[in-house]
């Protein structure tokens, strides 16, 4: 056997275990649920479940609602996290120290507890409403049992990790680059848009895929503080599977969610491949 062939075999045998695990616990179940989702009620195969998914008024509003929540949450999380990360990167002092110490706390609080905490805080007669009442505000907007509640919960769950990701990307921007830009007379805005943003853009993209996928599949917060209808897809899926016991429709919903996630995942993988390409060249 030539040396090259042996090296090739070694490479394949190194990749094989992880590839097999991937096939076993990811690819096969996906194919299984694809098959399940194509099964109609009489046992044959057709697209009836998908047709129902996109034509039923309730399911359609669920899909739109999920996309609205996901996109709004993702944008808000990215903006807030980016501002926080930039602030921590380029400033010093008490405030920065305190933020740095505290911004990870939400990660360590279990999501059910955090969700109930939010209900206590923002509910119709929660702390926020009571405090505002003493300042003379009679009415309090409905946050819990509404889309706003889910978005706020998503902010709580996603900001810490995203800030951490962006923070590490920002600390990789060398001070020397910024200082030299300052030396040649670039303004703050110009430095930000011409240097900092492009240098961290890829991490921003990665962060947005993480947030998007986390939010679109979320269950606890939407289940406990979301409205009864429309529901987010995770909640709806659980209801279809557990309560209505319509496995085929649940599989179709799951597969559709998977398609949306893989669409976003595509950007993530593409940017990864690009990076690999750059490194090897």
């Amino acid at each position: 056997m030539s040396k090259q062939a042996r090296r090739g075999l070694l490479g394949i045998s190194l990749v094989l275990p992880s590839f097999l695990i991937l096939v076993l616990i990811v690819v096969l179940p996906i194919l299984g649920s694809l098959k399940e989702s194509l099964t109609n009620h009489s046992g044959g195969y057709d697209l009836s479940n998908y047709k129902y998914l996109f034509t039923d008024k309730l399911m359609r509003s669920n899909i739109i609602f999920t996309l609205e929540v996901t996109i709004a949450s993702t944008l808000l999380v990215l903006v807030i996290s980016y501002v926080l990360a930039v602030y921590m990167r380029f400033n010093q002092g008490m405030a920065v120290n305190w933020i740095r110490r505290m911004y990870m706390i939400p990660i360590f609080i279990p999501s059910v507890i955090a969700t109930y905490g939010l209900i206590q805080l923002l509910g119709n007669r929660g702390w926020a409403a009571r405090i505002l009442y003493h300042f003379g505000s009679e009415s309090f907007p409905r946050i819990i049992f509404d889309m706003k509640g889910i978005i706020i919960a998503n902010l709580w769950f996603n900001i810490p990790f995203t800030t951490m990701l962006l923070g590490s990307a920002l600390s990789a921007v060398p001070n020397s680059v910024i200082e030299s830009a300052k030396d040649v007379g670039a303004g703050k805005l110009r430095i930000f848009f011409k240097l900092i943003l492009p240098l961290t853009f890829k991490t921003l993209l990665v962060a947005s895929t993480f947030v998007f996928m986390g939010v679109i599949g979320s269950f606890t917060a939407p289940f406990l503080i979301g409205p009864n209808a429309p529901q987010m897809l995770g909640v709806s899926m659980e209801q279809i599977f557990g309560v209505f016991q319509d496995r085929q429709l649940a599989a179709a919903t799951a597969f559709f969610t998977f398609l949306m996630c893989s669409f976003v995942g595509y950007f993530y993988i593409r940017s990864m491949i690009k990076e690999e390409g750059m490194r090897s060249s």
């Binding site: 039923d56 309730l58 429309p230 209801q239």
Partner: peptide
């Protein structure tokens, strides 16, 4: 019971 839940979800909740 299952059908009641389905009907309620699509007609009353929504």
């Amino acid at each position: 019971g299952k059908e009641i839940n389905k009907k309620w979800q699509s007609e009353v909740a929504a």
